[in-house]
Structure formats: C-alpha cells, structure tokens
Amino acid sequence: MVRPVVGISGNAHMINDEYAVQACGLHNLYAVSEVCEATALVVPALPDLNQIDELCAVFDGFVFTGARPNIHPEEYGETATPAHGDFDRDRDRLTLPLIRACVERGVPVLGICRGFQEFNVAFGGTLYPEIRDLPGRMNHRMPPDGTIEEKFAHRHDITLTKGGMFEGIFGSDVVLTNSLHGQGIKEAGERVVVEGHAPDGTPEAIRIEGAPGFALAVQWHPEWNAANDPVSRPLFEAFGQAMRESAAQRRAA
C-alpha cells in the first residue's frame, strides 16, 4: 500500500545567526512517519515558492506545527505590541490561505500549537498575546528549567466535549497533556468549534465545523513521544486513517 504523503510546515531559522534555512522539529517527522504510517516532507513556509493549488494536489494531508514566532496580529485586526513576540510573516502568508483551501477541498489537516492558533485566525478568530497575564489563567508556557523531557512532561488535564470528535478519538472526555504556549484563543473564528479546555478555561482543542475532511487542532504538543503517549498516538492514528481514506477517494475519482 502506498503511504500517504504529508506536508509539514517549515519554520524560518538561522544557523549561526547568518545562514537562513527552513527547519522542522524531528518529533513532527517521527510522529507522522511512525504513527500515521505516512511519508513526511517539510514544506518551506515561503509563499513565493509555493502555489496553494499545487500543494493541495500533491499532498494527502498537512501538519501545521508549533513555532516560536507568533502570527502577526495584523492578520486578526490588531496592532502588534512587544507582548506579541516575534513574527514570521512568510509563514502567515502561506499557512493561513493553505488551511482554508485544505478545509474547502477536504484535504486532512492537523494543527499543533501555533498551527492551532493558525486554524482560528484563518477563520476570522483572534488571539490573546499572553495567556498568563489574564486574571485567573495559569502559566501555559514551557518551564524555563529542566531537561527537554521535563519541559514536555504532562502538566494539566483537558476537559473535552462529551460526544464530540475528540472524545471519540481519545475514548475519554478528560485527557492529560503537556503545555508549552504563551498565546491562545481570544475569540473563536467562524466555524471554529472549541471542544476542549484547560482547567483555567483556555481553549485547547478545536475542530472546523462543516469541514468535509479531518480538520482538528490542539494547543498542546502531541508530537512529543507520539508513538507511546496514550493521547498523542490515537490523534495521529486518526489523522493517518483520514488521509488514507481521503487519498483512496481522490485516486478513485
């Protein structure tokens, strides 16, 4: 059986502060390869080098990954401040229209962390620049100290909508996840359905209403230890199955 081909969003990176590259975390590649049982290819987040129609035709699905730079607030009608952090305007210009195109055409998509926020902004939603500054909210950012394993360790529960798509995937309405983000959803975009919340009310799991294909996103990082984590594995398995079904339909058309 031919494995699905998955496009994984690249991120702008500098080697030795002087050589520009497009990079992707290895755990995203392993999660797609090992758990989705698919071929993972990094898609450079450079709109001048990519055509949306061609990407949708070539790939069987996309993973929109986490990244240090945030979505520029101009994309959701707000003014940039120091609290918004750094930006990657090339990624904004590629991923936001690509997400909308994939949803329209039924190409399976999975959003992670920044990708979760891209889903919301792509459909008209807005973001808080810093969740931890809001009254009653917890600090969702990566712990500053400890090993990489400690930084990606489980930190809080997510309560899911009973009878929703995520409960169906996980087989439970409460799951335990890691937490490594600063921003979060302020207002949900049109068609963005929130199905999961952290204990402080922060949205953590969303789906796109009416999408003809798999269109789910999570605020946490399921790619970390995806093959062994009881929450991450079924999410990537469901994504992989959706891609295989979608690819089969496209080949039969």
Rank of each mutant, 00 (worst) to 15 (best):
P143V: 03
P47C: 14
D133A: 15
P129C: 05
H84C: 04
Q117R: 07
L216T: 01
K151D: 05
T177C: 07
Q241D: 14
C24K: 11
G136N: 03
F166E: 01
A205F: 06
L96V: 06
G182I: 02
T161P: 05
A198F: 06
Q51P: 05
P212L: 11
F62W: 08
H181V: 03
D157L: 12
E37S: 04
A67I: 09
G10P: 15
H154S: 11
P230A: 02
V174F: 06
H72V: 07
G111M: 06
Q219V: 07
H84A: 05
A57C: 09
A101D: 11
D133W: 05
P212D: 12
H197K: 03
I15E: 15
V63W: 03
S179I: 00
H140E: 09
L46N: 14
A122G: 01
R68S: 11
T161Y: 02
C113Y: 10
W224S: 11
N225K: 01
W220V: 02
N11M: 15
M142H: 08
D86L: 07
L26G: 15
A238E: 15
P69E: 12
T95N: 10
V32R: 03
S172Y: 09
R105N: 07
L127R: 06
D133K: 14
D60F: 10
P47R: 15
Q51L: 10
I15N: 12
D86A: 12
C113W: 08
G125T: 08
P69C: 13
R105L: 08
A226Q: 02
E150A: 13
A38I: 06
R91Y: 09
S172E: 12
F62M: 10
E237H: 09
V63D: 09
E150P: 07
F239G: 09
V32G: 10
E167Q: 03
A20S: 14
R114T: 06
R132I: 04
F166G: 01
E204K: 01
D86N: 09
L41R: 10
I15F: 14
G106T: 08
P97A: 11
G61K: 07
H181T: 03
N16E: 15
A20L: 13
A226T: 00
A122W: 03
E187P: 05
R207Y: 06
H27D: 14
T81F: 00
N70Y: 00
G164E: 08
N120S: 03
V6G: 13
A40E: 08
M165F: 05
D92T: 09
E78I: 02
A247V: 12
I8R: 11
H154G: 11
R244Y: 05
Y30E: 15
E195I: 01
N225L: 00
G182V: 03
E78H: 01
D48R: 11
E75G: 05
I148F: 13
C36I: 00
L127T: 02
T65Q: 12
V109F: 06
G184N: 03
P144S: 08
I148S: 13
T81G: 04
I148P: 13
T81K: 03
G168V: 12
P4R: 10
A67L: 08
A31I: 02
N11V: 12
T126G: 04
R251H: 09
A248K: 14
N120Y: 04
L94K: 13
G124V: 04
H197T: 01
Y76M: 01
G25F: 08
V5S: 10
F170D: 00
G168H: 14
L134E: 07
A12E: 14
D200Y: 06
Y30H: 13
G10Y: 11
